[in-house]
């Protein structure tokens, strides 16, 4: 896909999004005008600003059509193919990590993600990878669970139990 095509597609998507926002305000029955005795209705702000978004998207389309923007004259690929792989793999791995949090919990999930990224994308040695992974997990546990008292997701009960044991130990002996 060329940058030129991408700009048109983006402006169409943003126009549809803006119209969707306006429709949502309308469908929720919010007042978009002056409500006697009460002042501007609660829909005034989102409705008229969304209309502005829609108009600027149309403006971008007009500029695209007249080839005014640099992007609309740019026939080069939207993402260079040799870089696309790296960006896509990084994003998919990140998505997988966040998805796995609900199943195996924060710590196992970030260890898998960091390990995968360093070992298979970065081609770092196993000792380097495992030290960094261990360091990162301990650091996050120490900072967030211990110092900030935040309970990060632990996943399914079977994984959660292991951490309960660790928390008990901490409360029992280290506080």
């Amino acid at each position: 896909m060329s940058t030129r095509t991408a700009e048109l597609l983006a402006s169409i998507a943003l126009l549809v999004f803006s119209l969707g926002l306006m429709w949502t305000v309308h469908a929720d029955g919010l007042k978009i005008g002056w409500v006697p005795e009460r002042g501007p209705g609660s829909g005034v702000w989102p409705f008229w600003l969304s209309l502005g978004m829609a108009l600027t998207s149309v403006w971008t389309m007009v500029r695209w059509f007249r080839r005014t923007t640099p992007e609309s004259r740019n026939e080069a690929p939207y993402i260079e193919s040799d870089r696309f792989g790296l960006v896509a793999v990084s994003f998919i791995a990140l998505t997988a990590m966040i998805f796995l949090v609900a199943i195996v919990g924060t710590y196992i999930s970030i260890a898998l993600f960091l390990g995968f990224y360093m070992r298979f994308i970065g081609k770092h040695s196993w000792p380097m990878t495992s030290t960094t992974v261990l360091g990162a997990v301990i650091f996050i546990y120490f900072l967030f669970e211990w110092q900030l008292s935040k309970y990060l997701p632990k996943g399914l009960p079977i994984f959660e139990d292991g951490f309960l044991w660790l928390d008990n130990f901490r409360w029992e002996y280290l506080m």
Binding site: S90, A102, Y117, M118, H124, A136, I140, F144, K150
Partner: peptide, 25 residues
């Protein structure tokens, strides 16, 4: 420091940082 170490660590900090602030996946 290679980007292949920095990038995943920043991603992890983003995830944990947002969760710790709002408590919502």
């Amino acid at each position: 420091m290679p980007f292949t170490i920095l990038t995943p660590i920043i991603f992890i900090l983003c995830f944990v940082g947002v969760f710790a602030t709002t408590d919502r996946m």
